[in-house]
Design a binder for these strands. Sequence first.
DNA 1: CTGAAAGCGCTTACAG
DNA 2: CTGAAAGCGCTTACAG
Lengths: 341, 341
Amino acid sequence: MSTAAGRRRPATIHDVAREAGVSRGTVSRVLNGGHYVSPAAKAAVDAAIRRTGYVVNRHARSLITGKSDSVAFLLTEPQERFFEDPNFNVLLRGCTQALAAQDIPLLLMIAGTEDERRRNLRYIEAGHVDGVLLVSSHSGDPVVDRLHAAGVPVVACGKPLGQTARIGYVAADDRGGAQDMVRHLHATGRRRIATVTGPLDTPGGVERLAGYRETLAECGLPYDEDLVATGDYSRRGGEAAARLLLDRAPDLDAVFVASDLMALGVLDTLDRAGRRVPEDIAVGGFDDSPAALASRPSLTTLRQPWDRISAEMVRTLLARIAGEDPVTVILPTELVRRDSA
Amino acid sequence: MSTAAGRRRPATIHDVAREAGVSRGTVSRVLNGGHYVSPAAKAAVDAAIRRTGYVVNRHARSLITGKSDSVAFLLTEPQERFFEDPNFNVLLRGCTQALAAQDIPLLLMIAGTEDERRRNLRYIEAGHVDGVLLVSSHSGDPVVDRLHAAGVPVVACGKPLGQTARIGYVAADDRGGAQDMVRHLHATGRRRIATVTGPLDTPGGVERLAGYRETLAECGLPYDEDLVATGDYSRRGGEAAARLLLDRAPDLDAVFVASDLMALGVLDTLDRAGRRVPEDIAVGGFDDSPAALASRPSLTTLRQPWDRISAEMVRTLLARIAGEDPVTVILPTELVRRDSA
DNA sequence: CTGAAAGCGCTTACAG
DNA sequence: CTGAAAGCGCTTACAG
């Protein structure tokens, strides 16, 4: 086939038509589902396609259909955090592969700077992609509104906060996960259960705190503000929050931390304070990141179903592109028991 | 502008021409560099573009130019390893951003399975991208030959081993980095310096070992096979290699490990064996991954210039697409001194 | 410097 | 079921 050096002029629909002895319209019909085509014609075209090694020219197709048959994966600032998050890789890989199964390429777009954001929005608003998989942690991110205003199908990863526009999203069950963890801590005898939350302008911050609070009530435990500290999803933030908690409530016997990374910081602080985990204080994380396994003690945590999240994002985006209404998908998390609680 | 719901029919070159009072050919000339256009005409067209919000239809352009103005980032199996590698993120992000600066979208392609490989190759060979940024750790990867045979411009990350085809690549100076580390170990008084290599069918495996060996000679130290163990870039592989080394050469006083991840395994083994780092045994890694900072003791290691690697990959690929010959770029690493050596 | 025209490779009503 | 034809939005020699 492709023996000679350099690129050969690729076969066109015209070559296939000549080879098969039919018109170009018939070839096109075979390419697009084979409706209104006789079995004989279809067979001839299929054979001709094989002989000529024909592959459709997507640019020509897109020019006339007005669709690009491609999808953007758009990461808005601050992307650094995501690029350090191993879960992000799982998400990106999952989306790429789910799209590839439908022969849809994924365009990776990073809107870290203002300039990049302008560029990417211009590209998307020009109709160069059929839809957008959006990863944005930014509450009230203007990108969401811009995309919505442009009429571009969008599916977000996680609930977009502070949005008026109704856009579809796929998220893990943050609240349910938090409930599972607090129930577990309670069931193993803990009664002074503290929490380190995520930033309260993120879904994970708000929802996991809500789940914590609800389960406390369910277990007949009082809600005590001294047991609640706000973190920023960083390891250092976890350290500081744990110091604050230890200071305000030295008698605490468990901490539910809204992310594994922060939980590592909590472990550091507890270690320095001479508190043993889990003997004195149980620690539960969230994410089931690789660090959860590597830490000492290994972390009891909640696994987010990133593989299912990516699959659902792609599925619902394609449905949206096909004209369906935006939907919300909430996927369950799974409690992973290790040594810390 | 884009107020109403849904997508508006976007402006075409025709609209711009009418608005500016010139022909479509003139608009096109302005779009493509403004050569052979009078200042007055150019000004009129620029104004019309601004008024109409015109954005070029890339499909139409590509159809006629035969170029896609897009580039693939192709990851061949086993991709899992790369997706766990934080350096991979830096590389991917760097490539995306360097391309974005030229308004060239990056198509992310993962060829993990045979099916995915077929799909991606078909897409690329059909001429749907102008070039490929290739990340392949596989010695003798057939993808390289296929791409070369198809005449698609390619730039690889790291030296492609076992290839007859001459393709361009960008790599860190593995050998020089290894030399720096061994010199450092020697300069700090170590005389029984062992090494844990990477797999010997990878450039990092081969080159870092070569650098180790050369520097031993340079320092007047004998090359002793008992001091060389082969790893597989995994933490467990590092553990096992260290046990082997300790067994064969209990008097060793330093280990140069060809990756940080393996170095963590080495630290585990040394810890269990009761050897103190760095007092009894110095340990040097390679990569400067986040784990290098998090480990105890923190790891002395070699930083790979991933930001420069990505920039050079994009630069040389674009040059190659423009018709230049393939080139090789070797970028220096940097010794990062921390606590382990 | 500029316009008119051809043509890139496809899809899709429109007749038959 | 099938062919002929129009047209998607652009670029690029070709005349002027």
